[in-house]
C-alpha cells in the first residue's frame, strides 16, 4: 500500500514540532541541571563570599537562566525567520469570513 501523502503544512509542522521538542528537552536539561548543580543548597555565608555576580545577577542565575534566555531568544528568531516555512492555510470550507481585514 502506498504511503499516504501529507499536506506540506502537515509535514513542515511535524518537523518543526520535533525540532521544538528537542530544543525544549535540551533547555530543560541544561537550565534545571545547571541551576541545581550551582544554585541549590550552596554553602555561603551572609557576605556571599564565593558567589560572583555577572551583570548584577548571581552567577548561577546568569549562566543558568539569563544567558540561556538570551540564546533561546536568538534561536527563536532564527527558527521563525529561516526554519518555519510559510504555506497557504486554505479557506473555510463554507468559504466565508476569511478576509483578514481586521488585523492588528
Amino acid at each position: 500500500m502506498p504511503e499516504p501523502q501529507d499536506d506540506p503544512i502537515v509535514t513542515s509542522s511535524r518537523r518543526e514540532a520535533i525540532y521544538f521538542a528537542v530544543l525544549w528537552l535540551g533547555t530543560l536539561i541544561y537550565t534545571v541541571g545547571y541551576c541545581f548543580a550551582h544554585g541549590y543548597d550552596r554553602p555561603l555565608d551572609a557576605s556571599l563570599e564565593g558567589m560572583t555576580f555577572v551583570w548584577g545577577w548571581p552567577d548561577w542565575v546568569f549562566w543558568g537562566i539569563v544567558l540561556p534566555w538570551g540564546i533561546c531568544t536568538v534561536i527563536s528568531v532564527v527558527f521563525a525567520t529561516f526554519i518555519m516555512s510559510d504555506a497557504p492555510l486554505g479557506h473555510d470550507s463554507s468559504g466565508d469570513g476569511d478576509d483578514g481585514e481586521s488585523s492588528v
Binding site: 514540532a17 537550565t31 541551576c35 543558568g64 537562566i65 534566555w69 533561546c72 527563536s76 492555510l89
Partner: peptide, 23 residues
C-alpha cells in the same frame, strides 16, 4: 527558574501546534 521556561513560550505557542491548528 520557576518562570524560566518562558524563554521557550513564543516557539511553543506558535511553532509547535500553531500552523496545524490554524489549518
Amino acid at each position: 527558574l520557576w518562570i524560566g521556561s518562558y524563554m521557550l513560550v513564543p516557539l511553543a505557542g506558535f511553532a509547535f501546534l500553531g500552523k496545524r491548528l490554524a489549518q
